[in-house]
Structures are given as structure tokens and as C-alpha cells.
Design a protein around this nucleic acid. Structure first.
Lengths: 248, 248
DNA sequence: CCCGTTTGACTTGTCAGACAACTGACATTA
DNA sequence: TAATGTCAGTTGTCTGACAAGTCAAACGGG
């Protein structure tokens, strides 16, 4: 076959269309109507079928609104304004983005067998003997303690040696840096609880203060739980938010 | 054409396909391969084009993985197990799904001018004079109070008359039923706070109990805030959870 | 026997053109 | 006036075909 030294990247049509469409939407205002599909397809140089597949994903994502027999419109642009809880990000990363200085206090690492609750949180039977690495620490931002974090990770995925001296307090970052295991999603439960004596002291708040409690299980691509974590946040320092879609 | 007396609800093809496909996936295990598109399309009784649009949204959502020239596979099943906080659903709807009986207690409706905080929550200036409808109520599930809700809606969108006698406690449902305004998304802030005397009494918990507080702004398609609401939840009755994506 | 190459079956990606179904506004009629 | 019919414009669906990617088995020369 004729060798064809393709330039660095020649994207397949549907990727090009996604980018072009995203650009187009950026230039329009919410509520504006897109050109009809046949026209738009011609403008973008693809078939209507290909365009439609892309349009559908944009609609699914909430960026566009399509109305049968009427047209396609750019929806409210709100969903992309800021990243909320739906992306998993380390506290350090968040602080960096906001231009704040974060540091790790009270780092405490431990290797032992999981307690029944911990084993269950990792997806094992309560009486399973699971070798785990426990990482406890308090994160301070601008000098004030804001969060108490506890990660439980099976030794299979992480050992004490993998935590370098400059551990920034994020297990997530360690996983991402070492490239394994491959992460997919995290399921996070949202709770509220009162500060016990221990947490009150560590977080420097009065006993009984309401704390936001996030319990999450981090899944790898092969559906195994690689990290079970419990986090307590002092209200007022971080704003957690979620964008919720209305289902017809 | 053969006359076909359409039964009450005849869903459009792509909706049927979505449901059928979801069922099919449920019966398979992660990693399993789907039948080739032409076969599957025939089985589901739609064209390949329609099937492909649906397949694409499933892939986008992370439920399926498609590989050009290879096949379509069931991905990790985690994202679809249960609906979390990311869909906006009324408490009544949630309770219904779970087979629980929910009822409205302490319904209290009021029409007046918005306070500065309320005006701000609705996207107006703090000193703006906004005519609003205030709806306060406590929702009980199985006889126990679980949530205290307060909705603030500009009179433009809702008036006391729109609330029928069988108001089930959900402003969302009223909006959806009357078809206007057209809703897009809700931005919800997640906080924790201690029960004051008032809420302690209403929710029948000790004073100082940690409550989960959700403050949300409901946006219409034309990017206006149509409902500002503050909700307090008693821990332990509802499980709020979020699925968080790992960003490479 | 071994190893690189070619071939071919199979799958997803894209295309073109046509018709059906839906919406909204205007014209028509009772 | 109010209900009804009509029509243009748009999205939804269908059909059949070809392009492009992947994998493995068959093939051939060393």
C-alpha cells in the first residue's frame, strides 16, 4: 500500500464534529437555535447520521436541547461553569486551583488486618482477613485544619514504600502517578455527623459541631474496590456542590 | 397500512431501544460482548442507525465500551446500579420507588417579598423587591419526619392557586405537570449544620443533632433561577450518594 | 521447523437519500 | 369568535451500501 505518512493526528470524523460543535455552541447564546441538521452536516462536512450521533450525546450531556419537529437549541450553559463533586479530585488539587496553600498534618500510616467494617467497605466479607494499609491525616489549608481523612487500601495495591517522603496527602494522586491500578469511578455517600472528642480536637472545633462526612469507595476498571475512605470536613471551608439533572 | 389502534402509550423507538438495551446489559456480565450491530438491530426491531445512536449514549455514559473493528462490550456496571444525587427527584418519587409511604406535615404557604438572602439565592440583588411564594413543609416517611423543606419561588412562576389540594410536597412535580417553566438543571450545595430548637422540634430530634443541609437553585432552560430551596435532612433515613469520575 | 506476510472474515464507522412524525403558524370555515 | 384544515420546516427513522479497523488462520520462503 502506498505509505501515507499521516500527519501527527488525523482525527476520525465524529471527533472533529464534537470539537467543531463545541466551538459553535460557545459562539452562541443559551436558547439560540442551531441550523437544521442537513445544513449543519453539510457545513461540517459529514453525513447527517454522524452528526446526529454527536448531537445526541450533547443532548444527553445537557448541552443541547432537541425538540422533535421544532429544532435543536443550545441549553443553559450552567453545567460547565465549575467542577463540582462529580469529579474526583484531591483536596490538594482543589486548593492549588484556588490558589491556597495546603499541607498535611498528623500523618499516621499503619499496616495491619482490616476490621470487619473496613473489610466490608472494601467489598469483602466482614470476617475476611485482608491485609491493608491505613493512612490517617489532617489536611490544613492556610493554617487551619479543614478535613480529617482516613484511607484504607489493600496491601495488594499499595504498600508503605510507595508513599514517598513528599506525600502530599492524596492517595488518588499516588495511584494516578504510578499508573496502576486503573481507576474508573468512586461511589461517595454523603452524611452529616457530630464531632466526637477525637475529631473535635484534631480539627480544632467544639465538640458536637456538625461535620460533613463523605464515605467513598474507589473502583478500579476491573470492578474491584481499591480504596475505602472516610472523610470529615469542617463546614465553611470547602463548598461542595452537585449539578442535578431534571428527569422528564 | 394495516390500521394499528395504538395502545395508551406507544413509546418512540429510541426509548424502547434504551430500555431493551438496559435490560439486555443487566443480563450480561461486565466484559461480555454484545451481538454485532446488524444482528442486535434486527432483534430489537429497529434500524442500525437508531440502535447506534443509543449505543453511543450508553458508551458516553460509561455503560458500554466500543472498539472499532472489534465489538461492543459491557463495561463495569457500577455507574448504573442506583440513581444518586445527580438526578433531581422529588422525595415523594424516591419514597415511591422504594415502596415507602410519604406524606406532607406542617404545610405552610406564604406570599410576601423576598428577604435579602432569598433574593440573592434567586439571583437578584439583595435589595431587590421580589414577590415570592414560600412553601414550608415537613416530609414524613413511614410516620417519621425525615426532611424539612423550604422553597422560595418568584410569583412569576408559581402562585398559591397552582398548588392543588392534593399537593404532594414537591414543587418540582408541580413544575413538571404544568409544563412551565422548562427546567434544565439544579445546582445544589451540600452542607452540614446543627439542629436549632425550631428544626429539632419539627423533625423530632435532639437539639444539636447534625443535619444534612442541601441548598439548591433550580434553573430553567433560559438560565433563570425559578426555585431557591433549603432542605434539612435527618441522617439515616435517606442515603445520598454521588458517583464521581476520575479525571486522567 | 520457524517466522513474517497475506488473505479473508468479522466488526464498527461513515455515507447518501428517502420517507415518517411532529410542531407551529397561517388560512379557512362554521 | 372559535374550531378546523393546511403547509412548510424540523427532527426521527429506515434502507442499503461501502470504508476502515482488528484478529486469526492460512500461506510461503528461509
Amino acid at each position: 500500500m502506498a505509505l501515507d505518512l499521516q500527519h501527527p493526528k488525523i482525527q476520525p470524523p465524529h471527533v472533529q464534529v464534537e470539537e467543531a460543535l463545541a466551538d459553535l455552541i460557545k459562539q452562541l447564546r443559551p436558547g439560540d437555535q442551531l441550523p437544521p441538521e442537513p445544513t449543519l452536516a453539510r457545513q461540517l462536512g459529514v453525513s447527517r447520521a454522524t452528526l446526529r450521533e454527536v448531537l445526541r450525546t450533547f443532548a444527553e450531556r445537557g448541552t443541547l436541547v432537541r425538540r422533535h419537529g421544532v429544532g435543536t437549541f443550545v441549553a443553559s450553559r450552567i453545567p460547565v461553569l465549575e467542577t463540582g463533586l462529580e469529579v474526583l479530585e484531591s483536596l490538594g488539587g482543589m486548593a492549588d486551583r484556588l490558589g491556597l496553600a495546603s499541607e498535611v498534618a498528623f500523618l499516621e500510616v499503619e499496616e495491619r488486618l482490616a476490621t470487619p467494617t473496613e473489610a466490608e467497605g472494601l467489598g469483602f466479607a466482614r470476617d475476611a482477613a485482608v491485609d491493608v494499609l491505613i493512612i490517617n491525616r489532617v489536611i490544613s489549608v492556610e493554617g487551619e485544619p479543614v478535613a480529617d481523612l482516613r484511607d484504607i487500601v489493600p496491601r495488594t495495591y499499595l504498600s508503605q514504600d510507595d508513599l514517598s517522603h513528599d506525600f502530599r496527602g492524596s492517595v488518588l494522586e499516588v495511584f494516578l502517578r504510578q499508573g496502576a491500578p486503573l481507576l474508573s469511578t468512586s461511589r461517595t455517600q454523603i452524611l452529616a455527623t457530630e464531632a466526637t472528642a477525637k475529631f473535635a480536637q484534631r480539627l480544632d472545633v467544639p465538640r458536637g459541631t456538625a461535620l460533613l462526612k463523605l464515605v467513598s469507595q474507589l473502583y478500579s476498571c476491573d470492578e474491584r474496590i481499591v480504596d475505602y475512605s472516610v472523610a470529615y470536613f469542617v463546614p465553611g471551608h470547602f463548598k461542595f456542590q452537585v449539578l442535578r439533572k431534571v428527569v422528564g
